[in-house]
Amino acid sequence: MTATGGTAVLVRLLATGDEPPVTISRSDAREAAEPELDKPMYHRNEPGLFQRALDWLWRRVDDLFDTASGASPGGTVGLVVIVVLVLLLVVALRWRLGALRRTPSPAAALFDEGPRSAADHRATAERHAANHEWTHAVQERMRAIVRSLEERALLDPRPGRTADEAAAEAARTLPHHADRLTAAARTFDDVTYGGRPATEAAYLRLRDLDLALQDAKPLVTTAHSGDTP
């Protein structure tokens, strides 16, 4: 029976007051009612598509937690499994996207302890390097470089000096090593304030610079006066 035919049958039964015949099936009744129920007046207060999708999502989340809470040997185990999976997902995303870059802190003083000799800083750097503690090794080797220049009177001892300031001042008397001094100070800042881990290669570059500077001759400028008559 079609929808139009089903509607006609219902109208005729209502008009005559007769009891509905038992020959009308459930599918015929549904087909007769569908055109009426499809009218907009019956759907004015229904939630929108977004709200229905959101409700569906929350129902799925509730089902997930209900399932987890009823897992054997207890609900706690299921919840712990979910938490572990979420943590593993976060770790995987962090590894895939790379570590978050830290905001470098303002440069602080190069020496954070009392006065120590260049030899002491070198010995400490070598101990850290032997243990593959490259960050500490880089820091101590940079301090050895600056302390050595102070001991040779190529830098005036000055508390609170930063690695960048020491490199810039030393470059004026050792211009042939200016680029390497600047690079060494940048490496020190990166591993000390920027949170970047040091490497063996970085330490070896500072060690080679330290050895080269021990034999470096400073640039001496001599003022020439004009000839007298």
Rank of each mutant, 00 (worst) to 15 (best):
D190Y: 04
L209C: 05
D18K: 09
D227A: 13
L181Y: 07
A170T: 03
A166N: 06
R186S: 05
A129L: 04
D208N: 06
L57R: 12
W56E: 06
L213Q: 01
G6L: 13
Y203G: 04
L93K: 15
P106C: 04
S27D: 10
A99C: 05
A68V: 01
D210K: 15
Q139T: 01
R96G: 05
G114W: 03
N45F: 13
V11D: 01
L155V: 01
E113M: 06
R158T: 15
L174C: 09
T16P: 04
L100C: 05
G48N: 03
H177E: 10
Q214A: 13
D215H: 08
R12S: 11
R158L: 11
G194T: 14
T103S: 06
L64R: 00
H128D: 12
R205D: 10
H176T: 09
S148Y: 03
D63F: 01
Q139W: 05
L110H: 00
L54W: 05
A108S: 14
E169H: 15
T76F: 02
P20E: 10
G5F: 15
A119D: 06
A8Y: 10
A166V: 11
L89W: 01
G6I: 11
T228S: 02
A29Y: 01
D210E: 12
E113G: 15
G6C: 12
A171E: 00
H176D: 15
R141S: 10
G195W: 02
G98T: 03
P104F: 00
A118F: 14
T16Y: 06
D38I: 11
D112V: 14
L79N: 02
L219Q: 01
T124G: 08
T76N: 08
H128S: 11
T173C: 12
G70T: 08
R180S: 07
R158E: 04
R102N: 11
A153S: 07
D63W: 00
L54E: 14
P175F: 15
V61K: 00
P197Q: 06
D55C: 04
A168D: 05
T182L: 08
A171Q: 04
L155R: 15
A32D: 01
L209F: 10
V220F: 02
A153L: 05
V83C: 12
N131F: 12
T173V: 08
D156T: 13
N45A: 02
W56Q: 03
L209S: 06
D208Y: 11
T124M: 07
G74W: 07
G98Q: 03
T16N: 07
G75V: 11
Q51Y: 07
L154T: 02
P197V: 15
R147P: 13
H136M: 06
E200D: 07
W95Q: 08
A15E: 11
V81K: 12
R207T: 10
S27F: 15
A129H: 02
L213Y: 02
L37E: 01
S148D: 06
A107H: 05
A223M: 05
T2Q: 13
A201W: 15
I82T: 00
P159T: 02
E46L: 15
Y193H: 13
A109N: 09
L219E: 14
D227I: 10
L88K: 00
T103P: 03
R26T: 04
H121V: 02
